[in-house]
Design a binder for these strands. Structure first.
Lengths: 225, 225
DNA sequence: TCAAAAGTGTTAATAGTACACCCATGA
DNA sequence: TCATGGGTGTACTATTAACACTTTTGA
């Protein structure tokens, strides 16, 4: 019975992470300028190989942790890239994931050591292998998901202004949004809660700070079912 | 440099196909009642192992062809299932795909030989490993895709009545659709073309036959961009 | 003549879009 | 006092949802 399996070939399986961050400059990706062989000096996604003792999902979490120091980050599988020659030297099947993180939270030393840099999403360098294609698919999926689930909050600090929130969605959708219509819609979402706090950094007048309440969101889902 | 790769483990990589079909009884899946070891007698998806000379996508096409005799079938990747113990005897990482085919077209001899059976989607037997989970994700993705792209026609014969089309979408969405609203919407879709033909099989009165025009659909996409 | 499926419009409700000015503040 | 970003409401348009009867025909 072992022969049922053993007559088939085996493959290196990698994970690659498309790591989104957001700040006043818009959406960025955390990329690696490789500081070791092979492909020294090339830009790539942060990746690694799946090991025997971990699921593929866990490998993605581990890799994200190794490069950013972060745990409990929102991640989604983008898909598997399995062209025969997608890496020139060896056949590697790679599973891509996207991650959404607050650009202020990551471990800066850890990222520096690995030669990680934030690159604005609309001005990415050219990337190794099929990483460009992975990024495009990840952006598409993230946009789609953001339009029907409150995942954007993973990219914001706990407290945020409505202008920040609007800028985020404009960056995700890649188009401008009418301010009054946006605020009207937000006001209808009970899971986006006003706080008593005012942000005085980004404007003279000061802007009301809001926060995302995941409990209320989860409750509101139940009523829909 | 070879050591960059060789210090990492390798894995069997499989593909599993969630094969949708549609007829008057609704949506069905083409399943396998295994007629060989291991897992003799168990119900499973149609699957196989990725080989050295083929991409993962090509492996899925090959497996579909082996079991149904069909080529050029609409397929989409569902995702990769990589839990450590998802198969009890060996570690296998599996990439799931869904396929949409016309239930009248497949090679019946070929399916019989492999012990394949159509099972109604709302009355599936319990399946091997995590195949149940794959099916659920595939249904969800197929529903999502069907709501924004005309993939349903892959499940219908070339000529179909509006009642068939409505029944199909009711089966995909899992809820009833108002007949007049549905027909109004279809009438606005220039890529669903009336023919001169009347189907006299499914009703005494006879029902107009329609067909999907992919050229018109592709054109209409361009104007949106 | 009747059972069975085909075909057909109108109205109300909801959601989405377009649009321009005043406010509060610190420099 | 003025430059900067914060905040607000209304009218129009498009989309969606609800709803019931007549037609045709073969058995």
């Amino acid at each position: 019975m072992t022969s049922y399996y053993s007559k088939h070939p085996q493959f290196y399986v990698a994970v690659d992470c498309i790591i989104f961050g957001f700040n006043k400059d818009g959406l960025s990706l955390l990329l690696l300028k490789r500081n070791m062989e092979p492909f020294y000096g090339a830009w790539s996604l942060m990746g690694g190989f799946v090991q025997n003792n971990e699921s593929v999902d866990d490998a993605a979490k581990r890799v994200l942790h190794e490069y950013t120091g972060l745990d409990h980050v929102y991640m989604e599988q983008v898909g598997t890239f399995g062209a025969v020659n997608r890496e020139p030297d060896e056949r590697v099947i790679s599973v891509a994931y996207y991650a959404l993180l607050n650009i202020n939270d990551y471990d800066k030393k850890c990222v520096e050591e690995h030669n990680g840099y934030w690159a604005k999403i609309n001005a990415l360098p050219s990337l190794l292998f099929d990483h460009q294609e992975m990024v495009e698919k990840a952006r598409e999926m993230m946009k789609q998901k953001a339009s029907c689930a409150p995942i954007g909050f993973n990219l914001l600090p706990e407290l945020f202004t409505l202008t920040q929130l609007q800028n985020l969605y404009e960056a995700i959708y890649g188009c401008p949004i009418d301010k009054r219509n946006f605020r009207k819609k937000v006001a209808e979402m009970s899971f986006i809660e006003q706080t008593d706090l005012i942000d005085k950094i980004s404007s003279r007048r000061g802007a009301r700070l809001y926060k995302f309440n995941n409990n209320i969101y989860s409750q509101s889902l139940k009523f829909k079912l």
